[in-house]
Nucleic acid binder design. Sequence first.
DNA 1: CTGAAAGCGCTAACAC
DNA 2: GTGTTAGCGCTTTCAG
Lengths: 329, 329
Amino acid sequence: MANIQHVAKQAGVSVATVSRVLNNITTVSPKTRLKVESAIKDLNYEPSMLGRNLRNSESRLLLVLIPSISNPFYTEIINGIENTAIANNYNILLCETDSNPQRENIYFNMIKNKLADGVISMDPAVNMQKLNELAEQYPIIQCSEYEEGGSIPYVTIDNELAAYRAVKHLIKLGNKRIALINSDEKFLYARQRRNGYERALKEFDLPIREEWICNTNQLDFENGIQAMRKLLQQPEKPSAVFAVSDTLAIGALKEINASQLKVPDDIALIGFDKISFSNMTNPTLTTVSQPMYKMGSTAANMLIGSIKGNKVESIILDHELVIRESTMG
Amino acid sequence: MANIQHVAKQAGVSVATVSRVLNNITTVSPKTRLKVESAIKDLNYEPSMLGRNLRNSESRLLLVLIPSISNPFYTEIINGIENTAIANNYNILLCETDSNPQRENIYFNMIKNKLADGVISMDPAVNMQKLNELAEQYPIIQCSEYEEGGSIPYVTIDNELAAYRAVKHLIKLGNKRIALINSDEKFLYARQRRNGYERALKEFDLPIREEWICNTNQLDFENGIQAMRKLLQQPEKPSAVFAVSDTLAIGALKEINASQLKVPDDIALIGFDKISFSNMTNPTLTTVSQPMYKMGSTAANMLIGSIKGNKVESIILDHELVIRESTMG
DNA sequence: CTGAAAGCGCTAACAC
DNA sequence: GTGTTAGCGCTTTCAG
């Protein structure tokens, strides 16, 4: 494998000159530049990032922490991150933590080991203490999930407001018995969405009934099925359900269908995230859309800014209620 | 940031000794080892991968090329790759090519630049000429999609046989008018699955009718909807449909429902891949299951073997027809 | 058992 | 405009 020395020798110049050509530094005469370029071609030379990165003490790799790659919610965000990264000559290292602290540690070490220049964390279950420690020394951005009052910059949406609007939509449709399928309330977004749910109910003098509030451990379809099963066993069944993720809502829909009830006639249903499947269900799912691509690109831009040493501010992006068949009575 | 020199000075030893401790080389007296370890702790030292990798001329990064992260088919494969990689002290760089040659080039350069030690390609649209060139110099494995008669080792399933079995299942159910929703036949798997489809029809003396064969550009839901719409416009409608991916089948199901027909009574339906959503549709989808996790871990093991300089052989894994509601008349 | 020193491939002063 | 050289952080001979 050819290296910079071989090129220098072949071109009859010094390594410094080769480096100058490689980095497009202007102070090289057209004649020498030509010589170098032809030597590069002759030897089929490709500069080694390893050497360059060591010298520049940077890896040009961004770490992206997600709990699970199989949650479609993340795919568009990742697209946004990746495109922005590539446009800035970075690459991303996608890291599935499975919300497993050991896995997480491996990745945290990568940044300590200089194998990554910064981190975008989307894991709601991330160890915040460690993340905060890391943030003292390395550039870190939180995306979607964040720590209230924390010092790590984040990009997210107003979860409380989004939930409030979704539930208000159900109320306006005439629903008075509205259930909530929430994820684990150790997560900030879960607490925020519950707050929005409760605010809407209170505003219209509807009671908050614990038996209509289900919490799930995870966001898989199966969790939605289980939660809905529980709700349907209540003596007084809800007439509408707000689920904090489309995957949960799709599971709920499956269970509603299985018990011979109809959406939206018997039970109206709203999900969250606007994943692509949510338009394939029968009926199609009303859902809250987050600007996922933009969230990703914003997070990446913030991180790259932070790596450059800029001060970056947290950002709240807009959301939108997408009304489809599951709430069209 | 502390480096190996600082640790050496603090411990009162040479950098060589620190390196020995770091790499668990036995020829270090317990006493010095202790000194070094305490110095490492004191200084909060983390070895730099950049330096280590340059010295060892390896990056311990594996490149994984996929056409699109949003296709759920890949998620389990990636899990398999990732777990195997981590177990062997590698990390993976997940690269979405969008089947875009420019994007692909960026990633191909990464391996030339020594930023990755090897490649697992899952992109059916990959530029085979370039991949073959690259394979002369670097370790490369193909996963799922491959080149017939090529020299790059691969792991896959028997697509022809899988399609044959799926269609035979439809025939055994009494169907005589069986349509095929295939992807672009520039892809090997598409040609293989078509062959299997035709073999089953021929074996039972059923005609192969071009108007019952649809080809789509991509594997999105929307493509399945379009294809099914075309099939339903035929003067003689098929009584069963075999789609070469679950996403296509789910789109087809959506369209069948929209035209007031029932699956499986009016039209039986089979997909391919057993993505998690295929169990959430109504009715649930009969599909061909591939051992995705195993495919991923096998590919990773093959690649790591190849990096070590081993000779690796291509592998064909088993598949399974998963019969669910969409073919239960 | 330990240390000195070379060198992986590159960039950036500094000198001319 | 171009060359010389130090050094990024690490591993690994080779001596002792």
